[in-house]
Simulated scan of single mutants.
Amino acid sequence: MTGKIYIIGIGPGSSEYLTKKAIDTVKMSDYTVGSTRAIELFSDVQNTIPFNVKELLDTLEKGVQLAVDGNTVSILSTGDPGFSGVLNTVLRISDEKNFSKDNIEVIPGISSLQLAAAKCHIQWDNANVMTFHGRENIEDILPVINNGKITIALPSRKVKDMAQFLLDNGVEKDRKVTVCERLSYPDEKIVEASMDEIANSEFTYMCIILIYPQN
């Protein structure tokens, strides 16, 4: 019997941003793989396989193997699976296990980047969209930061560290920045300030940073 893998985007964090497709798919799955925070968004879920960051790869391999063995497996990905999500990792593991892409379905979700653009009234199809999750080479932001477009980024480190990096590389102290923190949660916070002020402020790791062109 051939199994099935669903890679499901669960949105920015609040259950309000789950799609009906995501909810229905988890309900009918034999197993659901995801972080504890992601799994808790669903009320009807069975045979859960939670993971933390350190266990991520091993747990995803276990989830794919369950599908190889003939089960229907939902793998939960924060935001949208194709943007700083688990899509590429699951596809690589599936290829290694000779599990056909024909039996993998991606269910997109709403990313925190989309929500940040909406909250800030930004038409984001003309923005520089960048993610630095899991990457240390944040210097990639430098060639685009002055191209006249808004830059919307998922930082890889503390927001203040990224702001300081930009200041150290010639970005103006008064450059306008918006930080969207813990979007969709009850303690959501949106802060608009200068680059210098952001470099001297503390934020949690769950942030989107928007950097505006210098006037």
Rank of each mutant, 00 (worst) to 15 (best):
I10E: 04
S201D: 04
I104G: 07
L66E: 10
V159E: 03
G70Y: 04
E136T: 11
E202M: 08
T178M: 07
D140S: 12
I152Q: 02
N146C: 06
N71V: 02
I7K: 14
I110T: 15
Q46G: 01
A118S: 15
I10H: 06
I8F: 12
A127E: 09
H121L: 13
L183G: 05
I150N: 01
K97E: 03
N169L: 03
P213F: 09
K119G: 06
E105R: 06
I49W: 08
D187I: 01
L76R: 07
V45S: 00
G3K: 02
D80F: 09
L66V: 07
D80E: 15
I93C: 08
T25P: 02
Q46M: 01
M1H: 13
A67E: 06
P12W: 05
V90T: 09
R157S: 06
S74E: 01
M162F: 13
S201T: 10
N128R: 13
K158H: 10
D44I: 01
R135K: 15
G34I: 07
G13N: 12
L76V: 08
T32F: 08
M206Y: 06
L41I: 08
K20L: 13
N52R: 12
S14I: 13
E197M: 05
D44M: 00
Y17V: 08
E192H: 07
V45F: 01
Q114G: 11
K101F: 12
P155W: 02
F42N: 03
I145Y: 03
T204L: 00
A38N: 10
I138D: 04
I138K: 14
A116M: 11
V86N: 12
I104N: 06
D174E: 14
P155I: 02
G109W: 10
Y185T: 10
L113S: 00
G85S: 11
F83R: 06
L57V: 09
